[in-house]
Design a protein around this nucleic acid. Structure first.
Lengths: 199, 199, 199, 199
DNA sequence: TATGAATGAGGGTTCATTCAT
DNA sequence: GATGAATGAACCCTCATTCAT
């Protein structure tokens, strides 16, 4: 009994705050989400948020960090022990898009909230994003590509197209995994000289 | 639009309002730009804005409209009388990206401001974007592509990568035209079976 | 009729805001007076104050300025065309203390609110005070004093004693004029070698 | 007070709390110092302060008490076994000003914080001040003064000038002892009929 | 004693907008 | 068209304080 009570107490509500903040930031954006909204969603008073975060911006940073972490984990898990470079990249893209469109509010915040919209912490947000993108650089490195192919643009194109899909994706259409594969195929066919997959 | 035309004839300050609003929305985003900011930039009082616009949202819509118009015009002008489908597409991508990264605050607003951040007019903003994207559908239609190629994903990938470049582009690196061509080439080589261009 | 309406409009409520701010700052001090208090006293909403003042600190500065101005005017008016240096000083002390204890909320704020309690504008407040005190320097200059008398300490002692009286003065006891004369006499007798006045 | 004594015996952090509170109240004033500030300075959490004090006001009262005690002790120590009334008064003024400007945060709080800024305990603060000032009354009583001299105004003038010096004193100029003597001399010369001291 | 999380009220300030002039 | 003052709501955040642990 006492343990249960203590659990209620000591089981901090910080994760809950993060969850709700992530959800709201994803739904409405950073500026359109007020500290009151978040507090209300958690069931506390607005001022109580500041037991856990020094400012709304810091709360965003925390969500961002968690978002980047989750995308990274999802991608790493998807790659698993695969060894073929193209297979690894495909698995990464599928996982990236799945987590981005489907399964994680945190991840969506990373793509939805522009660092430059929150100047005070823009630098940190960009740093977090960059950290993640290095993972993709690593995935592209072992690909055998036609001479003259710029891997940097390949990465920017792929990630750009994937991330931008947040702007047009609607559940009910093609699932994220299929979208990711379609994008990758458009590049791969040319770069690998494969015939088009059957739709 | 009609108002803007009339304004240019008279000495109205409406175009100035639009210019400054576009600049500020691009720099700081919609929510981080206040009506005060815009009014101050124009040199009027906040209330005076409402002689020209019914609301801040309507002002955004007007900027958006002008942005879409400008991108469209730039692209159409770039296509000119070219007839080769790939050349037309390349010219379009170059013009699109140039206007997006370089030359027009209006155009940048179209990509920077998410419709879903401004729910009251989100539908209209999306409509405006879609209108423009149809132009790209038209450009893709005449391309001869390998069988099984989904033109829709081709468009989404290309425009997504181009638009997302706003997130990482920094003046001083490759110019927009080169970026656009790089992206297009990554797709074209596969789809056209061309050898890689020399970097 | 129209004039009356316009009067109500254009007769700005700014002086009223200053009056109420002065009253409240004097009664409760700067920090214990909220912007809401002032707005309520004036009969407007808290935000409306910011049509007239950029911040609560600026409002304090404005009150301070007016306070210094009023003390100065009262003192100058009291000096009038008197020519005897001691008479001039006495008139100044009496006027200073009268305005300070009796007749002006503005003046009381100048003595009540410590510049160092409001760091952002402390320098300006101190500057305003200093400006006024120069007037006393001018009054002391023409006094014939025993050799070796430091006029600066004379000024500091006199003004210090006068200003501090705000801490113990209670209406109903000796009136400010009498207090001022008592203080001055304590100094004057020594410096002028006059016999003590009869109480 | 009793708490403070007990604290010194044990290893309580109460004296530390008082020290830091005194320092902060002196530096920033009562209202501009938050319970958080004090707790942070001591290295505890805000809530922990309430193990030692029932409220912020009570903490102020405790600091005030200690301040009055310290001024009193300093003055009494300075008087020592002197017997000449003017010498005793001079020693008292010097000690009073030294402790007030130089050596004790506690003492400075007594002069810096206006009782009327803290209505709930204003009466007690005033009582504490008054208690101390009685000590000065006692010092003035044995002075031989010209007939008609009002000792009450003499005390108010002297203490007023001394206390107000907190408003203009800056370390680096004349030391407190010299200031005190200057003030006293301005009165004494007249009342004792002495020639001016050489500066 | 001290903690850490929470409270509830209120802080100063900004917001988009209105409207008589 | 533009002004200037005002609105009413909402903003983020801080306050002193509480209390189970």
């Amino acid at each position: 009994m006492r343990a249960a009570i203590r659990a209620q107490r000591s089981d901090s509500r910080l994760p809950l705050i993060l969850d709700e903040a992530a959800r709201l930031f994803r739904e409405k954006g950073y500026h359109a989400t007020s500290a009151r909204d978040i507090a209300a969603a958690v069931g506390m008073l607005p001022g109580s948020l500041y037991c856990h975060f020094a400012s709304k911006e810091e709360l965003l940073v925390a969500v961002y960090e968690e978002g980047v972490r989750r995308i990274g984990e999802a991608v790493k898990a998807a790659i698993g022990r695969k060894s073929d470079p193209w297979r690894r990249l495909e698995a990464a893209c599928v996982a990236h898009l799945d987590v981005l469109l489907n399964s994680s509010d945190y991840a969506q915040v990373v793509v939805r909230v522009r660092p430059s919209d929150v100047p005070k912490v823009a630098g940190r947000l960009i740093g977090l994003r960059d950290g993640y993108e290095r993972l993709f650089s690593d995935l592209l490195a072992p690909l055998r590509l036609p001479p003259g192919t710029d891997r940097r643009y390949l990465r920017l194109m792929l990630l750009g197209a994937l991330n931008w899909s947040q702007n047009w994706f609607r559940p009910g259409g093609d699932p994220p995994g299929r979208i990711a594969r379609q994008f990758l195929d458009l590049l791969r066919r040319s770069l690998e000289r494969l015939p088009a997959r059957p739709a």
